[in-house]
Simulated assay, not measured.
Amino acid sequence: MNTEQKTHLIHDRNSRGKTLTGWLDSRHTFSFGGFYDPNRMGFRTLRVINEDRVIPGAGFGTHSHRDMEILTYVLSGEIAHKDNLGNGEIIKPGDAQIMSAGTGITHSEFNPSQSKPVHLLQIWILPDRQGIKPRYEQRSFSPVEKQGKLRLIAAPDGRNGAVTIYQDVEIYVAQLELGQPLNYLVKPERYAWVQVTQGNLTINDEILKAGDGVQISGAENLIFHTDIGAEILLFDLA
Rank of each mutant, 00 (worst) to 15 (best):
P56Q: 09
N87S: 12
A80G: 08
L71V: 14
H81P: 02
A58R: 13
V48E: 02
R53L: 14
G61M: 05
I55A: 15
D52A: 02
A58N: 12
G77S: 11
L46V: 03
H81R: 05
T72A: 07
E78H: 09
E78N: 11
A58W: 02
L75K: 05
D52C: 03
G61P: 00
N84S: 13
E69C: 04
K92Q: 14
G77C: 06
D52H: 03
T45G: 10
H63F: 03
E51F: 00
Y73C: 02
D67G: 12
K82E: 15
R47Y: 09
T62S: 14
M68I: 13
I49P: 01
I91F: 00
N84E: 05
E69R: 01
E89L: 05
K92I: 01
N87Y: 00
I90V: 15
I79R: 00
N50P: 08
S64A: 14
F60L: 08
I49V: 14
T45D: 13
I49E: 01
I49D: 00
G77E: 05
E89G: 01
H63Y: 09
L75M: 12
L75D: 04
R53V: 13
D52R: 00
E78G: 01
Y73E: 11
L46A: 07
L85T: 09
R53Y: 03
L71K: 03
Y73K: 03
E51S: 11
I79C: 02
L71D: 06
S76M: 02
M68W: 02
G61C: 04
G77R: 09
A80F: 10
I70F: 06
E51V: 05
A58S: 15
I55M: 13
F60C: 08
P56D: 04
G88N: 13
N87G: 09
N87A: 12
G77K: 07
H65P: 04
H65I: 01
G77A: 10
A58Q: 14
M68E: 11
G57V: 08
I91W: 03
D67L: 10
K92Y: 10
R66W: 01
A80Q: 13
R53G: 02
